[in-house]
Structures are given as C-alpha cells and as structure tokens.
Design a protein around this nucleic acid. Structure first.
Lengths: 203, 203
DNA sequence: CCGGCATAAATGGTCAACACTAAATAGGGT
DNA sequence: ACCCTATTTAGTGTTGACCATTTATGCCGG
C-alpha cells in the first residue's frame, strides 16, 4: 500500500522552479543552467532538462536550442494575452460548473473565499486567491480546460506578485462574494458577468 | 551559412509522432515504448522521453509514472471540451486579427482557402483546412493564444480524420468563403458569428 | 484446468561520461 | 588603443550503462 504519486524528480524540480519564478526569486531573463540546478537538487541534469522543457511548454521559460533556457520575460502584450485568454476560458468553465455544483462543492468554494479574505500577506493571499478561482471552476469536470486555466492563472500570479510587491493591503474581495452569491442562486449569467469584470480589473 | 532549425532530435520525433497519431497510424491507447521508438529513429531513449513529455503536455498522449506513455484515448467529453475551447478562443484571435490584416495577409488567407477547396483527398483537405483556420488568425500576433489554438486544432484534426475516414467527399466550404467575405468588409461581428457556427458544425 | 506464487524478461527513470557548440578569454597584427 | 582571430572554457544535447519497478512467463499445488 504505497501509491505515492509523482516520484519523478523532474516533477519536484518543476514545482520548485515554478514557485521560484512566480515569487520573483528567479528573475525574468535569468539563465537557468541545467547542471547548476542539478547540483542544488542532487541529481544529474537530465531530469532538469525535462523540468525545463515543461516550464517552457507552460510559458514560464523560453529556450533557444543549444543556447539554454531563460526565465520568460514580462511583455505587456503577454500579460494582455493571458488576460484575454482567461476572459475567454474561465466563463466557459464557470457556466459548465454551476449546474453541477453540489452543496459540498459550494462549501469548499466558500471556505476558499474565507481563506482568501483572511490572508494577511501578499503571497498567501495570491495562493488562496488562486485556490478560490479554481474552486468555483473544478466542478465543470473538463480536465483539459482546467489545466489550461491553471497555467494561465500561474502566469497571472507572476505578474500580480511583481506589480503589487509592496503596495498590497488586506481587504475583503467583494467580487468573490458576489460570485458566490450568484452561484448560490444558480444565476450563471450574473456569476459570469461578475467574473468577467473581476478578471478585467486585474492587470 | 547553415542555420538549420530543429537540430534537436526530440523535435523531429515529436513531429513525426504527432503526425502518426493524427492519422491514426498510432491508435488510441497504444503503448509508446521509449526504446522501440528510439530504435526506429536511431537514437537513445532520452530524446524520445522528451518528445513524449511534450506530446503529453499537448494532450496527444497520457503518461503514468513508471508505467509508460500511451496515445491519448478518444473520450466524447474530451472532444466536447476541445470544441468548447476552440469556440472560446478562436473568436478572440479573429477579432484581434481582422483590424490588423494587410492586403497581403488577406491574400494568403484566400490562397489557403482555395487550396482547401481544391483538396482531393481527406488528409490533404484536413491539412489545408487547418492552414486556412490558422491563416485567418495569425495576424492577431498573440503567440501564446495561437499556440493554444494550434494544439486544439491538432486535437480536432485527429477526431476529424477518425470519424470521416471513408465518408469524405470533395466540396467547397461555403463557411470559409463567408468568413473571407466578412473579413474583406472588416465586419468582425459577421466573421466571428460565421466562425462560431462553422466550429459548432464540426463534431 | 485454474489460480497463485516465484522467477525472468522488459521497460522506465537516472546517472556519469562523451561530443559538439557557443561564449569567454587571450593573443597578435595594424 | 582597437579589431580580428585562435584557444580555452563552460554548457547543452546525446549516449550507453545502471538500478528499480513493472509486466510477462513458468511452475506448482489444488
């Protein structure tokens, strides 16, 4: 009885690197050298290659063959693009999710909302915020769509943490409560419309 | 003077495998064993691993750690999901593309349209059809969005070739001409609306 | 004949060493 | 001093071997 998932080293490396990139510990355009990273994880550089490959696929890094991988830079157009894609995809997920939501699902969403409002620092707020946005969508049961949205949210998070690094203040998000309320009324149109406004406000 | 692109073996392997998966030469759920593939490409299995990893990220394969990679199966829900995502994303790209289109871009789109109508067999039609759908969107200049759409179109193509394997007949696509006409009038609303109907018809 | 167990083969993940390329450094001519 | 070229250095991409785990095979008792 020991079905541990993700024993693959490259997964752990990927996870660690995404965190570091999101939080700005690895800065845009910084070189990601395979054997250096390999040393810090006590592995060879092959699993690192795989992790970097996946980071690239997810838009967190850019690679030039034979010339190495770098942390993806911020382009204003890139941010706009991510926003446009979230604006297109998240409403689809939400519309599919709302009719399927059980009371249990709703409770989880409410819990995520509270955790988000209770956050006292920027990085824990960002994390709980992402969890809230996922919580209201998971019920749609569309794995590919959810994965795409997840990656876009990661990209947004990076931008968010960068721009609000020091200007963040504790607050309760009225949009979130409005969305929850609309979901409780099973009013998809209202929920989607609030979500759209909410997404447009960021950035 | 020899700037050959794609010097990485894994890229070639990835390309070859996507083609084979799309065309059904590799069937759903078929096992993709690393060193077998490696032998057919005269390489070791590490570049194959990388190719498979990317196939998985693009939704063409599924992998279970320590248990290997298989060609992604067809799920009806999966098809629906891809359709919903294209329906959400392609209109965004089209709306951004139309205002930026130069006469040159338009000509390329028309050329792609003609090539598509002139296709005499299913697989060449599928290819030109995809090229048409890309041609009307590239001008939006949103690389991440275009990449996402590209992958979704690949997924659609697989389903398309599978379902129409023998029931395909030569024809001219009226939707395509309607879209082109709307683009020529710079009528984004009309173009998007035709595109949506067009995408809904497939599947 | 069947099911379960032990053993063998196959396959996946990792590693250390190699080949080759691009960048860094040093040298030499003007 | 400067620019151009040679040589060193660092880093990427690939290989073949290695170990661990999974899957197939064969054996045994029932």
């Amino acid at each position: 009885m020991k079905t541990e998932p993700n024993i693959m080293i490259s997964d752990q490396i990927q996870q660690a690197l995404t965190d570091q990139i999101i939080r700005g510990q690895l800065q845009p355009d910084e070189k990601l050298r395979q054997d250096h990273i390999a040393k810090t994880f006590n592995t060879s550089h092959v699993p690192v290659r795989e992790a970097l490959l996946r980071l690239e696929a997810r838009g967190l890094a850019v690679s030039i063959p034979r010339r190495g991988v770098r942390v993806a830079p911020f382009h204003p157009e890139g941010i706009l693009e991510v926003k446009a894609m979230r604006l297109a995809l998240e409403p689809v997920a939400l519309r599919h999710a709302i009719p399927k939501m059980t009371p249990n699902d709703l409770n989880k969403a409410k819990k995520a909302q509270r955790a988000c409002d209770d956050a006292t620092d920027l990085i824990s707020w960002e994390k709980t915020n992402r969890q809230f946005h996922s919580a209201i969508l998971v019920t749609c049961a569309m794995p590919r769509l959810l994965l795409a949205i997840y990656d876009l949210q990661i990209l947004s998070a990076r931008h968010l943490l960068e721009t609000w690094r020091s200007t963040w203040e504790e607050r309760t998000d009225r949009d979130h409560t409005a969305i929850i309320n609309a979901i409780m009324r099973k009013d998809s149109d209202a929920a989607v419309s609030v979500l759209k406004k909410h997404l447009q406000r960021l950035g």
